[in-house]
């Protein structure tokens, strides 16, 4: 059994063995776009150690992240749930390089239609994803930048299992939909509190508990909801 994607770990041995010939491990570099708006989603990806940002761009070029997908998620669930396998407004971009298990969307959809077990896992996951998108929408409207930034770092950390994040402040600003200067000043506050170290293209989390105290409630709310929906064998978020 694969150990790195939580959803795959929820599959029974029989289900995984049935699908495993269709899985192919692929490595993606940072910046690769897996889906542009209106493209047909032909592949579904189970991230092992890479992170994918789901973003929406506005007509004026402003961008914001609406969901973060990693080892707790699957990329391209739309193509399994719907006979219209696309989205017209979202982009899926690799934000932290790493590997995924790739499977043909049609193969997974076919099995989805036949297997109650697969439906249970993927529909529970879909509910968790809706929870994430909903929480992010409320968070972006109601919480100050400093708290959102702390939450975002914790979400990234929980999916990458690393305190060392290769990430630029420019990128973070795009994901949070804020000015770069705001990210720089928030990062400085965290640095002065001893929560992170940062330099060009790199952030190191050195006090996770302190960062949790600086984050809004959204990180713990979402962790609770993910564990309620997908937990059972183990908690998802470390």
């Amino acid at each position: 059994m694969p150990a790195k994607n939580y959803l795959l770990n929820l599959f029974s041995k029989e289900l995984y063995e049935k699908l495993s010939p269709s899985f192919k491990e692929v490595f993606f570099e940072t910046g690769v776009v897996l889906h542009y708006p209106s493209e047909t989603i032909e592949q579904v990806y189970f991230p092992l150690n890479c992170l994918v940002s789901v973003t929406i761009s506005m007509n004026n070029g402003a961008t914001a992240e609406t969901a973060l997908l990693g080892k707790h998620e699957v990329v391209g669930i739309n193509a399994v749930l719907s006979k219209r396998p696309t989205t017209t407004q979202t982009t899926y971009m690799v934000q932290q390089e790493g590997s995924v298990l790739k499977i043909d969307a049609k193969v997974l959809r076919q099995e989805f239609n036949q297997s109650q077990e697969l439906r249970d896992v993927l529909l529970d996951y879909t509910q968790a994803l809706i929870a994430q998108v909903s929480q992010t929408a409320a968070c972006n409207s109601l919480h100050p930048l400093e708290q959102r930034f702390a939450r975002w770092l914790l979400e990234v950390r929980s999916r990458s299992e690393s305190n060392d994040l290769k990430i630029t402040q420019e990128f973070i600003a795009h994901m949070l939909g804020v000015r770069r200067a705001g990210v720089t000043q928030a990062a400085q506050k965290f640095k002065e509190k001893g929560l992170i170290r940062y330099g060009r293209g790199h952030i190191q989390i050195i006090d996770q508990q302190g960062l949790e105290s600086s984050a809004c409630e959204c990180f713990s709310c979402l962790r609770k909801e993910y564990n309620r929906l997908l937990g059972g064998r183990q908690d998802l978020v470390l």
């Binding site: 400093e146 804020v178 200067a181």
Partner: peptide, 29 residues
Amino acid sequence: MSEKINQTILLVESDDETRPLLQANLRGW
């Protein structure tokens, strides 16, 4: 970090999210 410098900075920042952070950091310095 903070020391009494007694110098005044005029900050012009139109972004409502960045302004308070920048203001707090400048005061902290």
